[in-house]
Amino acid sequence: MHLPCRTFNETYEQDMAIVRTRLQWILLAAAIVFGLCIPLFTGTYMLTVIITTMSIIIAALGIQILTGYCGQLSVGHSAFVAVGAYSSALLVSQSGLSFWIAVPVAGIAAGLVGLLVGLTSIRLKGFYLIISTLAAQFIIMYVIIHWTSVTGGSFGMSAPAPKLGGIEFATTQSYFYIVFIALLIATYVAKNIVRTNVGRAFIAIRDNDLAAEVMGIHLTAYKLLAFFIGCAFAGIGGALAAHARGVITPDSYTLVQSFWYLGYIIIGGLGTITGVFFGVIFVSALNNGLAMFLSSLSTIFPGAGSLLAPLMLVIFGLVIILFLTFEPRGLAHRWQIFKAYYRLWPFSY
């Protein structure tokens, strides 16, 4: 990392800090204040989109840790998101548990299911591991779809809005703050995991598992830990999204959805936390932009709106391929280049 002019690291603490300069602190504070103000000037529809995007980011942070950092390719991420969503919805609507307890519990539940799937990673590597996460996707969704008495099958079930004291967070505006704060915490947690000892062990396993073991890293323990953390993030993201929507159905958690999660981190950049934000926001903007374009088009060509889903599949698939081919390090890398340029502007070189 390059520092701006006239800034020098004098202690290791300074060198390790994420937010280093005063300008960065100001920008961070400004971003948070701006985030808190979002509900004041956006409509309900837009706010719903933002809430969904934020909860996807939380879940995508999970797959970034598991796949991007620890190198354990997961093609079943949306099933873990589903475990979180259904656990939380069940706990609140059936057991009458408070939302504030249900969401973390849902995260732990998804993490434990992930741990179970992760057990296969002890013996399987690479392509063979895809099978176990794929199996998880199919088996988990099979259970959810066919256990009708509990989950409501393909009709889905309701996920009530949270309450705190006597206040019900029923409005989109109030719910926004819950997800926003959750996102801040999730990002903070993820960033700290990946930049300290645990994260280094994950990357070591990703880059060279044999050497990692010889250097004293307990492969099994850390792979399982990565599965637990990755799936716990998925579960919390899923639970938050579920309560935002109020109703959950199995068709939001298909294999295609799992591929989308992989796509987010490819587009954003594998192995970076900022990349997750870039990836999800980019795709979400693309999706909503396309939706608006098609709906305006449907005044001329009726039925253009029904093209949204398939067209988005084509575009998304194409974007993934283009990124892999031309910018395998994702948007996060572009951002780095931009920052490096801007830091020295107007005196580059």
């Binding site: 895809i130 796509g263 599949l313 084509v314 698939g317 993934i320 391929i321 395998p328």
Partner: peptide, 24 residues
């Protein structure tokens, strides 16, 4: 010559694209 993992992801992209094409 790229990593097998990257090519695997390309085939995921292909899967999504072809499904979209067929649906359209």
């Amino acid at each position: 010559g790229q990593s097998h993992l990257a090519i695997l992801m390309i085939t995921i992209g292909l899967y999504l694209m072809l499904r979209g094409v067929v649906l359209i």
